[in-house]
Computed example of a mutant assay.
Amino acid sequence: MIAIIAAQHNPNQNHLLAALPPEIVARLCEHLELISMPLGDVLYESSGPLQHVYFPTTAIVSLHYVMENGASTEIAGVGNEGVVGIAVFMGGNTTPSLATVQTAGYAYRLKKRWMLEEFNRAGGRRLGAVQNLLLRYTQALMTQISQTAVCNRHHSIEQQLCRWLLLTLDRLPSNELTMTQELIASMLGVRREGITEAAGNLQRASLISYRRGHITVLERSGLESRTCECYHVVKKEFHRLLCAVGNR
């Protein structure tokens, strides 16, 4: 069974790994471990030491900040475009955020030792290929985090919901999401009633269909017309920074 599952997955399903030169991917593949990520699985706790980095392929991971009273809000999401655990190669080794699986799926796990060895591999005064790529990804992730803060402060719940749906769709192979309104409200840090009203507006406009924790996007262009500029800022920055690596 394990062999069958492994045959259905490839490291190149993660966009960061796919952007690396083949010889580096071949070197990393000796240490990459394909793992299942069940919904709600905790990859690392707030302020806990990080022992691995994770390259999602079909899973989506949510990065949360948890308040002292237990309330939490998503500050960023990571799917097949990125890597979870940037504190490993940024030198901090711990982070105040909490990483949990938002959408079940698979990822490749890499031990801290091998990540640091590859990250620090450079030639002369030039940045190594892995270092260059991951620093650019980190800048793009910082853009997502800062834009999320701006969006939560200045835009309507409906605009925030559209942004969140679009960013999630970008990481999935289909237009269907398994997600309850309660969980979305927790992600966005708003009341469930606000999500219910916003989702109802989108459903009446025939942009989405919602039933028993399943959301189907019927008209993506309609969501894009209703979202705020935050979605486009984040998407443009990821494209600019990560495509620049391949065009060097």
Results as ranks from 00 to 15, higher is better:
residue 197 E to R: 15
residue 201 N to D: 09
residue 228 C to F: 04
residue 7 A to T: 09
residue 205 A to F: 01
residue 109 R to S: 13
residue 105 G to V: 01
residue 144 Q to T: 08
residue 146 S to L: 10
residue 193 E to N: 14
residue 173 P to L: 04
residue 76 A to R: 01
residue 240 R to C: 06
residue 111 K to P: 00
residue 159 Q to W: 02
residue 175 N to A: 12
residue 113 R to Q: 14
residue 239 H to P: 00
residue 109 R to G: 04
residue 31 H to E: 09
residue 46 S to G: 10
residue 92 G to F: 11
residue 200 G to V: 06
residue 3 A to I: 12
residue 4 I to P: 00
residue 40 G to C: 08
residue 178 T to W: 02
residue 231 Y to R: 00
residue 34 L to G: 03
residue 71 A to W: 06
residue 46 S to P: 06
residue 185 A to M: 04
residue 131 Q to A: 14
residue 70 G to Q: 08
residue 137 Y to F: 15
residue 78 V to R: 01
residue 100 T to Q: 12
residue 13 Q to S: 11
residue 100 T to G: 00
residue 132 N to L: 14
residue 192 R to K: 15
residue 126 R to K: 13
residue 71 A to H: 11
residue 75 I to A: 04
residue 126 R to A: 14
residue 214 H to Q: 11
residue 9 H to C: 05
residue 153 R to L: 10
residue 45 E to W: 09
residue 80 N to D: 08
residue 176 E to A: 10
residue 82 G to Y: 01
residue 84 V to T: 08
residue 182 E to I: 05
residue 233 V to S: 06
residue 229 E to T: 10
residue 44 Y to L: 03
residue 36 S to R: 13
residue 33 E to C: 07
residue 111 K to F: 08
residue 235 K to L: 06
residue 22 P to D: 13
residue 141 L to K: 09
residue 234 V to W: 05
residue 1 M to E: 11
residue 77 G to P: 00
residue 141 L to Q: 11
residue 12 N to E: 15
residue 209 S to E: 10
residue 232 H to F: 15
residue 70 G to Y: 13
residue 173 P to Y: 04
residue 66 V to C: 07
residue 102 Q to C: 04
residue 56 P to L: 07
residue 74 E to L: 11
residue 131 Q to W: 06
residue 193 E to Y: 09
residue 95 T to G: 01
